[in-house]
Nucleic acid binder design. Structure first.
Length: 587
RNA sequence: GCGCCCGUAGCUCAGUGGAUAGAGCAGCGGCCUUCUAAGCCGCUGGUCGCCCGUUCGAAUCGGGCCGGGCGCGCCA
């Protein structure tokens, strides 16, 4: 794929690079090497008795400001007490024995209460820009996951209506988490669980509601059941189904549980198509859509019940079958099979997790809404009771989303069917804004989705700020191309010309990117990507304000800067791609 | 009552045990004959809910309060 300015995509070159080559110049590797250097210096101090043998952990961190260096180390403060010396004195002893190594470290200094601040050499940073260009789309990726098979199950909203803002958050979150995990070397599959079993109360209530509406349309006696679905959209489903399957199908459908379930299954096709389409608008696609029904049909549920009985963890009481979860840390025992014979969610969860593990997943991540938070302990206890290692599963609970407009919370009522659908939201503010906003907060935090801000197509909207940086770079590359400057083979530019503080900052930022991706993946924190993207955009915009890229008087510097912004564009693209937000070439 | 999440600038929120706690939005003031002003620069704005502890060092870890949200079915 050719870039807008005829840039050659160096993907083929990237494939030739080995993992070691990739690692050599990431900041993470620099960090590892610096830690070794410090350890050697510390050893030297101990050898001549300047410092005592004591517990210290050599860790590097990022100083708050760039003029404080690229890394800082706190060992002097850790050792001050056992050494009986002032921290700065300890620091002095260490840096005196720090052996300068080829090209990595430029200088170091003591700062503040006793920090050792380390400055990377510009040469090292300049080389890292070349890696970005050579590795392209895979820059920032790593192999931390080592091919471990991970399943991310998310959304899994009951197939009883359109997705709404309440269950919208799991979509972008789960999808970006999956993308992140893939980027750091996991073998990931996304899955949507359809709660469409015959025993599923909600699913059957939904069927009964649709049937009632169909009968209404046909002029027959009708009644929406207690706790049924009263939203307008139920009428739409009824109409659609009558068109598809004919009036007779519904006129003759028995008004009972069996009829309700049959209608629910017919409606499911429509609902799932709608859900799939809506998520598709956000760039979310699932490798698997798993029907809970399959667990019943294929006998997994019955086998599980049998197994639990044999293990002696299930018992009959009050006409129901209970699981002895209290033996595994739960507050009370849980019902597996109701006295009506219907299976509960925990029953299907247990059969389902076994199915997942049987499919070869080493790790199963569940992304659940806050309404399911309370069931996590019982499900985990249930797994333990069933002999499934709960360590193979991970539950991530996201908090609620509220829409705000004009400073007020938009009120919604699910019972009355007064909801804002995800589709409406996307049509209102756009897919990119929807994804970015939903991803911009920590999953633990409640999220207020500011509709007024989201609608604004201006500088106030953070999505456009990031996309604008990308478009701006594309524009410069286009301009350079039009002026006849070479915009290919930029990895061969003379990077040593890039010495301006804003250039160094940008380079450093990009060199740090791979470890940020890894951290975001490990912390299951896609929202960090949103912040990173803004931060990179800001770093670029600042550079843009202070450094002119196209300068026909200085062709070599121009070329180096074109290489630099081309790299910045690549990293912006890579972050946006993890976020699932588009990177427009013009705005 | 019990459990989970949150409490950081006027508002919405970041913040891997470190230095002068940061962004966005809102407010005030500058910067376009030069590569996209959807931008940049500067200013204003804080008892990090409160108390005690751990630590050389706490917004961050532990305990206890206070406040808000959500959940606590033989619904999912």
């Amino acid at each position: 794929m050719a870039g807008p300015a005829g840039l050659r995509e160096p993907a083929s070159v990237a494939r030739l690079l080995t993992t070691n080559q990739l690692r050599r110049r990431t900041l993470f590797m620099a960090e590892t090497q610096l830690i070794e250097l410090l350890a050697e210096a510390l050893q030297a101090c101990r050898a001549c008795g300047d410092l005592p043998e004591c517990e210290v952990e050599i860790r590097l961190e990022q100083p708050p400001r760039p003029d404080m260096g690229d890394f800082s180390c706190n060992i002097a403060m850790q050792m001050a007490k056992p050494a009986g010396k002032a921290p700065r004195e300890v620091a002095q002893a260490i840096i005196e024995r720090l052996q300068e190594q080829g090209g990595l470290l430029q200088r170091c200094e003591i700062a503040g209460p006793g920090f050792i601040n380390l400055f990377l050499s510009p040469t090292w940073l300049q080389d890292s820009v070349r890696d970005v260009l050579l590795l392209g789309d895979s820059y920032g990726h790593s192999n931390a996951g080592a091919g471990t098979k991970v399943q991310v199950e998310f959304v899994s909203a009951n197939p009883v209506g359109p997705l709404h803002i309440g269950n919208a958050r799991g979509g972008p979150f789960g999808d970006s988490l999956a993308r992140l995990l893939m980027a750091v070397g996991y073998d990931v599959e996304r899955e949507y669980l359809l709660n469409d079993g015959a025993d599923n109360t909600q699913f059957r209530l939904f069927g009964a509601s649709v049937l009632a509406r169909a009968r209404e349309i046909l002029g027959l006696e009708w009644e929406i059941p207690e706790n049924g679905y009263r939203g307008e959209y139920i009428i739409d489903y009824a109409r659609e189904l009558i068109e598809r399957h004919g009036e007779d199908t519904f006129a003759q459908m028995p008004v009972d549980d069996a009829g309700a379930y049959r209608v629910a299954m017919l409606a499911e096709e429509v609902v799932v198509a709608e859900i799939r389409e809506t998520l598709g608008l956000l760039g979310i696609e699932f490798e698997n859509w798993f029907s809970e029904r399959a667990l019943f049909e294929e006998g997994a549920i019955e086998r599980k019940i049998e197994q639990l009985r044999e293990r002696g963890v299930a018992y009959q009481h009050d006409g129901a079958l209970w699981l002895r979860t209290t033996d595994f840390g739960d507050e009370e025992d849980r019902v597996l099979v109701r006295s009506t014979g219907a299976k509960t969610y925990i029953m299907t969860d247990l059969a389902y997790v076994e199915n997942k593990l049987a499919r070869g997943f080493d790790h199963c991540i569940y992304v659940w809404g806050p309404d399911h938070a309370a069931q996590v302990p019982s499900v985990k206890a249930g797994m333990a009771a069933a002999g499934v290692d709960p360590g193979a599963t991970e539950f991530i609970i996201h908090q609620i989303v509220r829409l705000t407009e004009g400073g007020e919370v938009v009120k919604m009522s699910k019972r009355a069917g007064k909801i804002v659908t995800l589709r409406q939201l996307i049509e209102d503010v756009g897919a990119d804004v929807t994804r970015f906003f939903l991803l911009s907060r920590s999953v633990d935090a409640h999220l207020d989705f500011d509709l007024d801000l989201a609608r604004r197509e201006s500088d106030e909207n953070p999505v456009y700020y990031v996309q604008y940086a990308h478009a701006r770079i594309c524009s410069i590359l286009r301009e350079a191309h039009e002026r006849g400057m070479a915009t290919d083979d930029l990895q061969e530019a003379d990077f040593s010309l890039l010495e301006h503080p804003d250039e160094l900052r940008l380079m450093r930022w990009m060199a740090d990117y791979p470890s940020e991706v890894l951290a975001a993946a490990q912390q299951r924190a896609p929202h960090r990507l949103a912040h990173l993207s803004r931060d990179l955009a800001a770093t670029f915009h600042q550079f843009y304000g202070n450094c002119r890229v196209i300068d026909e008087e200085a062709p070599e510097l121009s070329r180096a800067r074109l290489a630099l912004i081309s790299a910045a564009r690549q990293v912006l693209r890579n972050i946006l791609s993890l976020l699932g937000v588009s990177a427009p070439e013009t705005m």
